[in-house]
Design a protein around this nucleic acid. Structure first.
Length: 679
RNA sequence: GCGCCCGUAGCUCAGUGGAUAGAGCAUCAGUCUUCUAAACUGAUGGUCGCAGGUUCGAUCCCUGCCGGGCGCGCCA
């Protein structure tokens, strides 16, 4: 809420100017509960030492250092308190004249200068605004702006084209809870960026070729002797699970002692595939497509979707077949960025030795720094920057970008695809892609630094706009999950159990009777619950997966929010909201309950929560906010009657409930969580 | 060895350069003839890993240390 901010700030700086403090950048921050609704300035803290300076100097003559310091602190504090009370008095006068919209009183509390809202009026205003804005409430302020327009806040929030790549599962392997975290975070980030007004291309990249596929194919061919259970049915999920079992079993043989024969067969198959053997290709194609279908079903269920035009569903095999990677590697060699390895072991491979290219990167770094500073760098600063860059490049070491046998590595393809993404958007839309984001686990941090650095060396114009959005992994109590060792928690297993438990509770409650609705609701509750578990933890926090905890439907979990939403729905059902006029002007002012004000107060911070979440690429903040919002609703529900309340309370409260539902609905949409109407 | 991330209540996690550090779970005691008890109320529980520094003010920023996770050329 930025109501009255500008008026307050300009009045405040006038008052300060009168006292000889010109050009001060005062700031206002929201006052936190349980204090009343308002904003606060801390200028008196920062100014206090300056005001007291002369007095301190006079008084501290002859005192020891420690004594003088203590005295200075005391005098400073005193001065701060006094300044705050003087300012409060002056500003209160302006406030009484109605200079600050929605501000009711100005008070000093110690050195804090507090501006308190007329809570009732503001609560009416918020409720009405949400009603009018509806699903657009909270949208980025720059959404809808045209290139060239200037954002009045000066933020870098101009709408631009952004590609986000996430949920990159490998075919022929199980989809597990680690993928669930990635897909949940990625989709939420994409939605949040869209809500800020950006054009977002949602991309995924499927690992549908490579050694793991060859292993799975070998496993399927030897399924019987390996004791791999056949697929329970032809359904995509069962087929995917089957391929996962084949992979795991084959891998065990592959890595076992005396596995040379298996290794040879697996590699032979891969070689056939690469040569384009019709048999290998058709085996691969049909199995790949089975996994593909299973993934599409899972994504649909998770409300995860990818851009169809231009098609951002990328296959590793396509990158392979078009030799995008090899072409890139050749190009890098031609430009002298990559060099040929001449060691006996790796003869013929190509690698980039970052440290050797300092001179190539330095001018760009200097330019970037100068742009940021708005001036030229001094000699010393240049040297420092150079030293810094040297250190970074040393840390990056070397990266191999082509195997000695000429086949491509993962990074070879990554380089090719990175460029392709920019080309694709330009070709399709005629507009440049401004940013390319990769939602990938933190274990790949170095890898992406290396890849992006190679892009920079390549002279790729958008290299600095590629960004790794990293998050820590989901691990098991006994350690890292590994499809190879089969130590994963399958997404399907988790989901099935979650749905089963949700259904049980719904049947117990008996509020929903229609069978189809029971199942549909159970699915929505279960999916939201498991996704919320993944989303509410910050990205830099590792998740130690606990099955029971992930399935919790109590407390700080998605069902709590859904439950609040369903309850609120009952209170507004059939209500004629028109009764409250446009809602922005209070129809009649009644004494508001603290819980009503608290709820409106939470509603008011939704826009800034969305903005922060988008800026930080961190959906967890929105999760926490929505939980607090729902908790505020629960308080309101406990304290205030709605349906049987007299007017005008009833109209206002129903409007408040409706506003709560709108914000929660939007929040769920952004987080890609399903939301049942009743439960 | 070097680099990145984490360390906050018994457990899982929020949090912010500012006012008395918060939730959930667990434990204990309560609340359904009153708009859905997947809820609500209360109690218990903290040297914010340790030690310095910057600051009027540090859990937050800086430095060092300790503990845990991850990464560091032919895997993806």
């Amino acid at each position: 809420m930025r109501i009255a901010y500008e008026q307050i700030l300009s009045a405040l700086s006038r008052c300060l100017a009168e006292r000889g403090f010109e050009g001060l950048e005062a700031q206002l921050s929201a006052i936190e509960e349980p204090r009343p609704w308002g904003v606060s300035s801390n200028v008196c803290f920062t100014l206090a030492p300056r005001i007291a300076a002369s007095r301190i100097e006079a008084a501290s003559a002859g005192l020891s250092k420690a004594e003088a310091k203590k005295l200075a602190i005391d005098l400073g504090r005193e001065a701060g308190v006094q300044l705050a009370s003087e300012l409060a008095l002056e500003l209160q006068q302006l406030c009484s004249q109605g200079c600050f919209p929605y501000i009711e009183r100005v008070e000093a509390e110690g050195p804090y200068l507090n501006f308190y809202y007329d809570a009732a009026a503001l609560a009416h205003m918020i409720t009405g605004t949400v009603r009018v804005m509806d699903e657009r409430f909270g949208q980025g302020i720059c959404s809808g702006m045209q290139p060239g327009d200037e954002c009045y806040r000066g933020y870098d929030c101009m709408p631009r084209r952004i590609m986000v790549e996430y949920a990159q599962p490998n075919t022929h392997k199980d989809f597990h809870v680690g993928h669930l975290r990635n897909a949940s975070i990625g989709q939420a980030i994409a939605n949040l960026l869209e809500f800020q007004g950006h054009t977002v291309y949602k991309a995924t990249y499927l690992g549908d070729v490579g050694l793991h596929v060859a292993k799975a194919m070998w496993g399927a061919a030897h399924a019987q002797e390996l004791g791999v259970a056949p697929a329970a049915s032809d359904a995509p999920q069962d087929r995917l699970a089957f391929w996962g079992r084949c992979y795991k079993a084959a891998n065990a043989r592959f890595e076992a002692e005396g596995g040379e024969a298996v290794q040879a067969e697996v590699r032979a198959w891969l070689a056939h595939w690469e040569e384009g053997s019709v048999e290998a290709r058709s085996q691969w194609q049909s199995s790949r497509d089975e996994c593909d279908r299973a993934f599409r079903d899972i994504f649909a269920e998770l409300l995860v979707d990818f851009t169809a035009d231009p098609n951002c569903w990328f296959y590793e095999s396509i990158v392979d077949d078009t030799r995008l990677g090899q072409k890139t590697a050749e190009e890098l060699k031609r430009r002298g960025i990559a060099q040929v390895d001449e060691s006996e072991k790796y003869a013929g491979s190509l690698y980039v030795h970052f440290e050797e290219h300092l001179g190539r990167l330095l001018p760009g770094e200097i330019r970037a720094r100068e742009t940021a500073l708005g001036r030229e760098l001094r000699e010393g600063e240049r040297a420092e920057l150079e030293a810094q860059l040297g250190k970074t490049l040393r840390r990056l070491g070397k990266m191999v970008i082509l195997r000695s046998d000429g086949t491509s590595l993962y990074q070879t393809k990554e380089l090719g695809l990175a460029k392709h993404k920019f080309d694709l958007v330009r070709e399709k839309t005629g507009e440049p892609l401004a940013e390319s984001l990769y939602v990938v686990g933190a274990e790949q941090k170095l890898y992406f630094e290396q890849v992006f650095s190679i892009l920079k060396l390549w002279g790729f114009p958008n290299a600095e706009n590629c960004r790794h959005i990293s998050y820590e992994l989901v691990v098991l109590p006994e350690g890292k999950m590994s499809s190879r060792e089969g130590t994963v928690v399958s997404y399907r297993e988790l989901k099935d159990e979650a749905v089963r438990r949700a259904e049980e509770i719904i049947r117990e409650k008996g509020l929903i009777t229609e069978e189809q609705q029971i199942q549909e609701t159970a699915r929505k509750v279960a999916l939201a619950a498991i996704k919320f578990t993944m989303l509410q933890v910050g990205g830099n926090q590792q998740i130690v997966f606990d099955f029971e905890q992930a399935l919790s439907f109590d407390g700080r979990a998605a069902p709590y929010l859904q439950y609040a939403y369903a309850r609120a729905g009952k209170l507004t059902a059939g209500a004629s909201l028109e009764q409250g006029g446009n809602g922005i002007q209070p129809t009649a002012v009644h004494e508001l309950h603290a819980s009503e004000i608290a709820l409106a107060r939470w509603l008011s911070s939704f826009p800034s929560v969305c903005q922060t979440a988008a800026e930080r690429f961190e959906p967890a903040g929105l999760c926490n906010y929505l939980y607090s919002l729902a908790a505020a609703f629960s308080d309101f529900y406990r304290d205030c009657r709605v349906i049987d309340a007299p007017q005008p309370e009833r109209a206002f409260r129903q409007g408040l409930c409706e506003a709560f539902r709108t914000v929660l609905r939007t929040g769920f949409r952004l987080l890609a969580l399903p939301l049942p109407e009743a439960m």
